[in-house]
Design a binder for these strands. Structure first.
Lengths: 189, 189
DNA sequence: TGTGAATTTCAGAAGTTTCTGAAACTTCGG
DNA sequence: CCGAAGTTTCAGAAACTTCTGAAATTCACA
């Protein structure tokens, strides 16, 4: 691998973490390389930088495109595909969240929904359904929050994050303001 | 596998999802089984229910304990270990978030921190450091929010989630309250 | 200290994923 | 239609993970 040491460290780290993130080493390395590269790279440049086979690069790029984590770029009078990552790290976060939800959460949600429609006959089944119901409600609540928040522009999302738990105080304060101003029901929660 | 069909479906699903969640099939199945079981189970009962080897159960339980996802229980006059999952699904969520952060985020944060301390000499390195800086700031912001929110009791956390993006309006409204003095912030709609 | 039930460890078999090089395919200018 | 440049596919090799049964270890109690 023929890269400046700092860049190499970053690329190798993403390779190692790949397996923990549900992608493989090569995919992680390619992503890292594209992320820090000042220009889009073509497949052959990736082969040279990482010293892996052309076919491996091809398959890994496909996978990254399936995740919507890399973009295709073209140059005038050049037939080759060039690859890059989105500029905005918040946009990358949104994509990552969306894809992980799709792969890691949605299938479970739909299995739970189906099972919860079935009739429980034995006590064991009734208890199981009760537990699955708890799990289902939790996941629903999380995904509802996510769906609500995911469309926010970056500045608002960032603002929301920096509020953190202060929001709960604000909620209470707002209840007071509201109820003093004109009697109103409490905000849910 | 000798389980009621509804329970079997749930257990098999967790097994299949296991690889997407960074655990393996057996670990996923055992977790699912413990989660819906009305009583703690001992290793031998897991062997019978899932029809897998005793040693596989032993190793998988170790892994689940390393994740803090299962608890040990004992019965009077019985030397065997019995295993169960925490009752409260919100507590499970907290544990899961904590462990995933520890494994999937913290190592990257510390690699980024180290690299950002180094001196960039070439323009490529300077650009790489700029990008890593963006990534680092994003992760810091997310983990700061997480650290802030993770200690909330369930009812507050749940309330915060059900507010979703409405919070941003509340933030703006609260600015107005502060600036105008006693205008009433809208909570709903 | 010896016994036996419960548990863990471990070497290797079985299964899965990743990677490569070679061949096949696609596209486009001449 | 040809050839050159680029890209994808694929069979099998290499590497890695998971699983098992057998052996080793632990531990309560007589």
């Amino acid at each position: 691998m023929n890269l400046p040491p700092m860049i190499q460290a970053f690329v190798l780290h993403f390779g190692e973490m790949g397996s923990r993130w549900g992608i493989n080493r090569t995919v992680g390395q390619i992503y890292a390389l594209l992320f820090i590269s000042p220009e889009p790279l073509c497949a052959e440049q990736i082969v040279e930088a990482l010293e892996i086979s052309r076919s491996n690069v091809s398959i890994s790029l496909r996978e990254l495109m399936a995740w919507n984590l890399v973009l295709l770029r073209h140059r005038p009078d050049d037939r080759r595909d060039f690859f890059t990552t989105p500029e905005d790290v918040w946009q990358i976060l949104r994509t990552l969240a969306e894809e992980r939800k799709k792969r890691e959460v949605d299938p479970t949600l739909s299995v739970l929904r189906e099972i919860l429609l079935e009739d429980a006959t034995t006590p064991a089944e009734r208890h199981a359904q009760k537990r699955m119901g708890e799990m289902h409600r939790l996941i629903e609540q999380l995904t509802t929050w996510y769906d609500d928040v995911k469309g926010l522009e970056t500045s608002r999302l960032s603002g929301l994050l920096s509020m953190g738990r202060k929001v709960t105080r604000l909620m209470e304060a707002s209840n007071k303001v509201v109820s003093i101003g004109r009697a109103r029901p409490r905000v849910k929660g």
